[in-house]
């Protein structure tokens, strides 16, 4: 080989720069050194951009929650043995054998999973399927021989269901039952709000209902959304890619606004934090908000919005108060 740096060496330097930026803002001297390095080889800027993007992607690790336990994801000793998920992938036919089902699928005693306000948690289930619970959510799970069952009592959860045609995954929420053999979907039931179901991948069938008979044939496929009040028939509709993406940002600990009023935006933060965002001035409360914010940082939101509208954000008595005008009150 020619004595030219290998692309792997370049990656080593690129990640070292990004790790340094992750530690603290670069000094002027470092910035200059980085510029010189970038200009030295046509591969370096690309390697650096990729390293930055991967580092940005890891910001969503926060959404795993403080209780994240790598052992639940095939970590540490899991390295040696194939995960359940891989057993399933490779041994589809073998799943028919009851012995394998017992080992690979793990029958589970009923269990409840709950998150506190502001907490987001990814929970692996016995068969390798997962649920991501948003703030203030309660889900109960029970795996039987012929059915995987979960009930969403309140809150919002994203389910990734691994295929098992012999054992459907059933979710009960607000008196309705949804069933799938494989798919990914988000279900939300907040107090005083309609049931909201969004299918991300695969397919979901509405199997039971009130009133009887009214919704017999409802099938939801990828990018379809259904909202329903207690006694009305639920009618699904298509959701745009953009709507889907925004709707699922909470999984990365983020909230997106696209022209919602400041009052509505403030209310969204109330789901995630005890720190309220208060906007006493009705005119300011009607201003439209656009942007992407960290869900668990109402103070940061307050400061960003204050800057947007030439207002001030003041933290007092556990609330962020937004006000226009220069402190004459």
């Amino acid at each position: 080989m020619i004595a030219r740096k290998t692309n792997e060496d370049i990656d080593d330097v690129a990640v070292a720069w990004v790790a340094r930026e992750d530690r603290a803002p670069l000094s002027e001297e470092d910035k200059q050194a980085l510029r010189v390095w970038l200009d030295g080889d046509p591969r370096r800027p690309g390697a650096y951009l990729r390293a930055k993007a991967v580092a940005m992607r890891t910001l969503s690790a926060r959404a795993l929650g403080a209780n994240y336990d790598p052992a639940g994801f095939g970590g540490a000793e899991g390295e040696q043995r194939p995960s359940r998920r891989r057993i399933m992938a490779w041994g589809g036919a073998a799943l028919a054998s009851a012995a394998v089902v017992g080992v690979a699928m793990g029958l589970q005693a009923p269990r409840a999973y709950a998150t506190a306000r502001g907490e987001i948690r990814l929970t692996p289930l016995a068969d390798g399927s997962t649920m991501m619970l948003n703030t203030q959510t309660l889900v109960r799970v029970k795996y039987d021989r012929d059915r995987r069952f979960a009930s969403l009592d309140e809150g919002e959860a994203y389910f990734t269901v691994l295929p098992d045609p012999a054992r459907p995954f059933v979710v009960e929420v607000a008196g309705r039952r949804f069933s799938t053999t494989s798919g990914a979907f988000r279900i939300r039931k907040l107090k005083g709000e309609p049931l909201d179901v969004l299918v991300h991948g695969g397919r979901l069938d509405l199997t039971s209902h009130a009133p009887p008979g009214a919704e017999r044939a409802v099938v939801l496929e990828a990018n379809m959304r259904l909202t329903a009040r207690d006694n009305t028939a639920a009618v699904p509709r298509r959701a745009s890619q953009d709507e889907v993406r925004r709707d699922l940002l909470w999984r990365e600990g983020q909230i997106a606004f696209e022209g919602e009023t400041l009052a509505q935006a403030a209310a969204s933060f109330a789901r995630y934090s005890d720190v309220r965002v208060v906007v006493p001035d009705p005119a300011l409360a009607r201003e439209p908000v656009v942007g992407l914010f960290a869900a668990n940082d109402p103070v940061g939101f307050g400061h960003a919005v204050a800057e947007m509208f030439g207002a001030t954000a003041e933290v007092r008595n556990g609330a962020v108060v937004l006000q226009r005008g220069s402190g004459e009150e």
Binding site: S60, A61, L64, Y68, P70, F73
Partner: peptide, 8 residues
């Protein structure tokens, strides 16, 4: 990502 962290 959760699985990747577990494999580190």
């Amino acid at each position: 990502l959760a699985e990747a962290i577990a494999a580190m």
